Simulated scan of single mutants.
Amino acid sequence: MNADELQALRHILALTIDECANWVACDGDIKAWQSWEEGRQTIPDVIIEKMLAIRQKRIMHINAIIQKINHRIGNNTMRVFRDLETFRSVYSQGEFLDWKIYQSVAAELYSHDLERLSS
């Protein structure tokens, strides 16, 4: 993964640099994350592995929902959650990154006119 790919994936997931530093790198080092995205420092393997795992989890969610869409009759509205607390009221075991992945999937499906969104 290069700097541009890291930044693109962060944007797709609607994560800020601060959120990535806290929830992906788990160290709060915003300057390090910025230096990876700017290509000034090599992205650590552990960060690449985590981001690729998050991307894979997102792909799995999209594919699962598309399967349901293909077999569904009727409503095609996907719920979105404006904040982590609301997400956890439905997905009690959900973590911050789970919420971000869910929101990213909802936006992706909406962008392809496969789902409407509702909170």
Score class of each variant (00 low, 15 high):
Ala64His: 12
Gln41Pro: 00
Asp98Thr: 02
Ala53Ile: 06
Lys31Asn: 04
Ile48Val: 06
Ser92Leu: 11
Val105Ile: 02
Val105Leu: 03
Glu85Gln: 14
Asp27Ser: 11
Ser35Val: 06
Leu109Ala: 03
Arg72His: 13
Val80Leu: 09
Thr86Tyr: 01
Ser92Ala: 14
Val24Ile: 09
Leu84Gly: 06
Trp36Asp: 02
Asp18Tyr: 10
Ile59Pro: 00
Glu19Trp: 00
Lys31Val: 03
Tyr110Asn: 05
Arg55His: 15
Lys100Asn: 05
Cys26Trp: 10
Gly74Ala: 09
Gln41Glu: 14
Phe81Ala: 06
Ile43Met: 09
Ile54Met: 05
Val105Asn: 07
Ile54Thr: 00
Glu38Arg: 11
Ile47Gly: 08
Glu85Ala: 06
Gln103Asn: 13
Asn70Val: 14
Asn63Thr: 07
Asp113Met: 05
Asn63Ser: 08
Arg88Pro: 00
Ser35Lys: 13
His71Met: 08
Lys50Phe: 05
Arg55Glu: 15
Gln67Asn: 11
Ile54Phe: 03
Asp113Arg: 04
Glu38Asn: 10
Arg82Gly: 15
Ala64Phe: 13
Ala53Glu: 09
Ile43Ala: 09
Arg79Ser: 04
Gln103Gly: 14
Ile59Met: 14
Met51Leu: 02
Thr42Lys: 12
His71Phe: 08
Gly39Met: 06
Ser35Gln: 08
Leu52Pro: 00
Lys57Thr: 14
Gln41His: 13
Arg40Pro: 00
Lys57Met: 13
Met78His: 12
Gly74Lys: 07
Ser111Asp: 03
Val46Gln: 06
Val80Trp: 07
Ile17Ser: 09
Leu52Ser: 04
Ile73Asp: 09
Gln93Arg: 08
Asn63Arg: 10
Gln93Thr: 08
Lys31Ala: 07
Lys68Pro: 00
Gln56Val: 03
Gln34Lys: 15
Tyr110Phe: 05
Asp29Lys: 07
Ala25Glu: 13
Trp99Phe: 12
Ile66Phe: 01
Ala21Ser: 12
Leu97Met: 12
Thr42Ala: 12
Asp98Arg: 03
Asp98Tyr: 03
Pro44Asn: 15
Ser104Gln: 02
Glu49Ile: 04
Asp29Glu: 12
Trp36Phe: 13
Val105Cys: 02
His61Phe: 04
Asp27Ile: 00
Asp98Met: 03
Glu49Asp: 13
Val46Ile: 07
Val90Glu: 15
Trp33Gln: 04
Val24Leu: 02
Ile62Tyr: 03
Glu85Ile: 09
Trp36Ile: 05
Ile101Pro: 01
Val80Ser: 10
Gln56Ala: 11
Ile59Tyr: 10
Gly74Glu: 11
Arg79Lys: 10
Glu108Thr: 07
Arg79Ile: 02
Glu95Gln: 11
Ile65Tyr: 11
Arg55Ser: 15
His71Ser: 15
Asp98Glu: 08
Ile73Tyr: 10
Phe81Glu: 02
Val80Gln: 06
Ile65Leu: 11
